[in-house]
């Protein structure tokens, strides 16, 4: 076929084909990297989930046990508790972060100097290592010597054992997450508010709309798609919580602050039960995928409304 084309077309199609090869050469390294370091381990997890495999024994051979690990997932009351804890943690921390983050973003949405300083300060908690934030708050919440209890004692409230009591331990862990990540919501929403069409808002004001109406009818609908995405990112991230819990409570007291990542970690690397950890990992990914799909549906619905 080639010889029938004139020289020019031939050269063009040749350079096009060269471009396609070049484009693939850009995509292949990252894809191969992710396939080997992320996708294969997940497959290996799925494979192990059908086996009993005690990985601390040097010569251990995986023993096929079918769906036994999955049956265990649905009867393990400790796992049910951690799943419930994770859900409570995610719902509580994310809803407070969204509400508070939006309010503070609206408060600092201007261009003044105070707003810029506030924004710079809000960045600090979110770039702090979660481990460092957890240890810092553990120090501050110490029931005997902590500064939080000291300040509360000035108000007449005495001796809360923050991390030793089941309810307050959960509240503390949620609070530290709120402390770290409300600023993230604030900064992203503030950036979104900056990008709003000002003339539209001004026109509404000229037409006699009250500021609250402007917020309710113009600002809020316009940033709703952004808020949906922020909600999704925060919600998914909340399910990955590990570092702060690890240093603050280690999941305790008892199982009070045990979350799914910490639970899987313990089953795999403390009790060395790779099969059971694998089964939980597979179900965890499936559940997260479902959540993501729901959010994606919701977002396209939000965008269609605009």
């Amino acid at each position: 076929m080639e010889h029938r084309l004139d020289g020019k077309t031939n050269r063009l199609s040749l350079s096009k084909r060269k471009d396609t090869w070049a484009a693939w050469s850009f995509l292949v390294p990252a894809s191969l990297f992710l396939f080997v370091t992320s996708f294969l381990p997940l497959l290996y997890s799925a494979y192990l989930s059908f086996f009993r495999f005690k990985m601390n024994l040097p010569k251990a051979v995986p023993l096929f046990i079918g769906l036994e690990n999955y049956a265990r997932v649905f009867t393990d009351s400790q796992l049910a508790t951690s799943a419930l804890n994770t859900l409570v943690f995610a719902l509580a921390s994310v809803s407070v972060e969204m509400a508070l983050g939006l309010m503070v973003a609206l408060a600092i949405s201007g261009d003044g100097k105070i707003n810029r300083v506030a924004l710079a300060i809000f960045i600090v908690p979110m770039i702090m290592a979660p481990v460092a934030a957890g240890t810092l708050w553990r120090m501050m919440l110490d029931s005997a010597t902590g500064v939080v209890n000291y300040l509360l004692s000035l108000l007449g409230i005495s001796g809360v054992s923050w991390l030793a009591n089941t309810t307050t331990a959960m509240v503390s862990v949620i609070f530290v997450n709120i402390w770290q990540l409300t600023p993230w919501v604030t900064v992203v929403v503030a950036a979104g508010l900056k990008a709003l069409p000002q003339d539209c808002i001004q026109a509404a004001l000229v037409d006699g709309a009250t500021p609250f109406q402007v917020f309710r009818r113009i600002v809020l609908p316009l940033i709703m798609p952004l808020l949906t995405v922020i909600l999704m990112i925060r919600f998914i991230d909340a399910f990955k919580v590990f570092d702060t819990v690890y240093v603050m409570t280690g999941g305790g007291p008892g199982l009070a602050t045990e979350m799914l990542p910490n639970f899987i970690y313990k089953q795999g690397l403390k009790y060395f039960d790779a099969g059971y950890a694998g089964a939980m990992a597979v179900l965890f990914v499936l559940a997260m995928t479902l959540v993501v799909l729901l959010f994606v549906k919701w977002r396209s619905w939000e965008e269609a409304k605009l």
């Binding site: 992710l34 590990f242 790779a274 990914v285």
Partner: peptide, 24 residues
């Protein structure tokens, strides 16, 4: 296909690959 794959990778928690990665 690649876009969705990377998106899914972005979403799932690191802990799910931790044990197999440790073994390997």
């Amino acid at each position: 296909i690649f876009g969705v794959w990377f998106l899914v990778q972005k979403m799932y928690p690191a802990i799910v690959t931790a044990i197999p990665v440790f073994i390997v």
